[in-house]
Design a binder for these strands. Sequence first.
DNA 1: CAAATACTCTACTATGTTTGTAGAGTATCC
DNA 2: GGATACTCTACAAACATAGTAGAGTATTTG
Lengths: 146, 146
Amino acid sequence: MKVSTKGRYGLRVMIELALRYGSGPVMMDTISNCVGVSRKYLYNLLTTLKTSGLVRAVRGASGGFELTTDPNRITASDVVQSLEGHLTIVDCVHDGVTCPRIDHCASREVWQKMGEALEEVLSDVTLAHLAQRQEQKNGGQLMYYI
Amino acid sequence: MKVSTKGRYGLRVMIELALRYGSGPVMMDTISNCVGVSRKYLYNLLTTLKTSGLVRAVRGASGGFELTTDPNRITASDVVQSLEGHLTIVDCVHDGVTCPRIDHCASREVWQKMGEALEEVLSDVTLAHLAQRQEQKNGGQLMYYI
DNA sequence: CAAATACTCTACTATGTTTGTAGAGTATCC
DNA sequence: GGATACTCTACAAACATAGTAGAGTATTTG
């Protein structure tokens, strides 16, 4: 019951983009350095996030990636679900393909509640919130890890 | 971010034992039939649960497994944590081995909240509760799936 | 006692997912 | 037209999950 590196790195990536929102596209090498992920792997994450419509890519010289919308309109739930898929702890909660014992399964109600609890936590946290928190922790400086 | 079959089957197993609590040990073949898991795999689950002190084994003829204590003193949290490990979404939340950026990581607070939310849901649900719910759904009959 | 019963243990394997890497291709800016 | 920087397909190593096989051991019951 862990978040994979996709979700972990992905949220960091989005926080970095939130910190730089409004300053034009940020190139992959910069993000790669800040977050500590290889350029190649980063591309996977950004491609997924792009497909979900959370980021936009600008090609060519002085290109890069940027958020498609204001950081306070993107939640951690959006980011995590984009990269990790549905916020369901067990497939039967979301699938149309239900297991044969679904009607007399008490466990299922527990798994459902867990998913709802996660959704509640994540949808309550915006990127703006996280970026602000990050700035506080760093004393207002962007971290580069060069 | 899924519960594995260990957790899913394990909780079912414990609900079955809760339904039969006080009637002496239940043998693995019975549990295996009710829950729909092979005897061999079931052994893995029960061994883990035994190590955690949630069930007790009785060897020999007319042996089997039974809960070590009353079903309303065992929570879903106990069961899931026994089989799946700590209820942490990301290791850095619980590990002593922290990642180098732990001090300026805003994401970590999100992962921590998620774990706490799960704990809250699971520790609020007892086996007695689940067994009762299961009985309601089955009209008071034990299901055998023979 | 002895036979049946039922848990116990070690080891092995197949399968799928995660976590990446390689290298050539393509759009855009100046 | 050259430099810049994203794009795409394919592949592969490492790890975790989900089991299976088969022989061993403790207890009850007659």
